[in-house]
């Protein structure tokens, strides 16, 4: 065997230095230039937390990606078969692996994954669920003593919203006050939907007969896009609406006016509850063999009086 160690350059040292420089520059550029624009923005605390989490993930992922690319590029340039002086791969002991490299790879990837697990868990706890649906009994709640309750009701194919602190009126508009902690209660009257208020950083499944709670605190005014993010039928793609975060004074005026305008219809709605029985009306939901439906109050959301 020929001893080539004296003639081989220090490949890994070269690659490491190259990686360190490129990854450092890429991370710095990404964090300062792209970071502030990463979705979902900074309209709420959960959106801001989500943005920070995404930035952390990308700042960690970029060096990994760059390491792979640098190794590939270095190998193509330095160890290509047409390069003068490069021996044909022949196998043998040197081709079986390098324990140092293997250990470094396993240790670094394990550290990254476990580190991100801890980071994600801490972010979830500190962010009071980070805007995600926490089910009917939230483990993590914000510190606010008087959050504004807003109920989100999914139905094929539209979200509607109830405001229990304003007489329980229901509307197709999602209007929220700024600088306020919002306690969303998400449910459904039929199939499973998913309430995804993109700029709010809030996303919670809307399941029939289940109260799914999600928190966030608004910190900027602006427009919000709400989409259903669970394939829920033929018009799923049309199940969206636009909401707004406005000043607390403007919200108070809007809510009071809407409460007044819809008072007659609100009286026909069921008392505010965290879930409703999502059966059907005359179409009778499931099978319809008899064409007979007594319209019992338990079957119809909002029914107070059985139809004659």
């Amino acid at each position: 065997m020929t001893d080539t160690s004296t003639r081989e350059p220090r490949h890994f040292a070269r690659m490491f230095v190259l990686w360190l420089v490129v990854a450092g520059v890429a991370d710095a550029l990404f964090y300062t230039l792209a970071g502030p624009h990463v979705p979902p923005g900074t309209m709420t605390t959960s959106a801001k937390d989500n943005q920070f989490d995404f930035n952390v993930l990308l700042v960690i992922a970029l060096p990994v990606l760059i390491a792979v690319w640098i190794y590939m590029g270095y190998a193509i340039v330095m160890w290509r078969s047409t390069r003068k002086g490069v021996a044909e791969p022949v196998g043998g002991a040197v081709a079986r692996g390098n324990k140092g490299v293997q250990f470094a790879w396993i240790a670094s990837t394990s550290t990254i994954v476990m580190g991100l697990f801890v980071f994600g868990t801490v972010a979830l706890i500190n962010g009071a669920g980070s805007g995600g649906g926490e089910g009917p009994n939230p483990v993590w709640s914000p510190n606010s003593k008087a959050p504004l309750q807003v109920q989100v009701i999914g139905q094929q194919w539209k979200f509607t919203y109830r405001y229990p602190s304003f007489g329980g009126f229901e509307t197709t508009q999602l209007i929220l006050p700024n600088n306020t902690t919002i306690e969303f209660h998400v449910t459904s009257l039929d199939v499973t939907h998913d309430f995804w208020a993109y700029q709010l950083g809030v996303k919670a499944d809307a399941n029939p007969q289940l109260d799914n709670v999600a928190y966030t605190t608004t910190r900027e005014t602006g427009s919000v896009t709400v989409r259903c993010d669970e394939l829920c039928g033929i018009w799923h793609g049309a199940m969206y609406n636009y909401g707004r975060v406005i000043s607390p004074a403007a919200f108070e005026a809007w809510a009071t006016a809407t409460q007044r305008a819809s008072v007659a219809n609100t009286k026909l709605l069921p008392p505010y509850a965290l879930t409703y029985v999502p059966d059907a009306n005359g179409a009778d939901g499931g099978l319809y063999p008899t064409n007979v439906d007594p319209y019992s109050a338990s079957e119809v959301y909002g029914a107070k009086v059985a139809a004659s």
């Binding site: 094929q156 039929d190 033929i234 059907a280 939901g285 319809y288």
Partner: peptide, 23 residues
């Protein structure tokens, strides 16, 4: 702009929103 009926009148379909409601 899509338009639709919000009365689940697709008789015999899940929650009344199949059949004619989805066609």
């Amino acid at each position: 702009y899509s338009w639709q009926c919000f009365v689940p009148c697709g008789l015999g379909t899940l929650y009344g929103n199949g059949g004619p409601m989805g066609a």
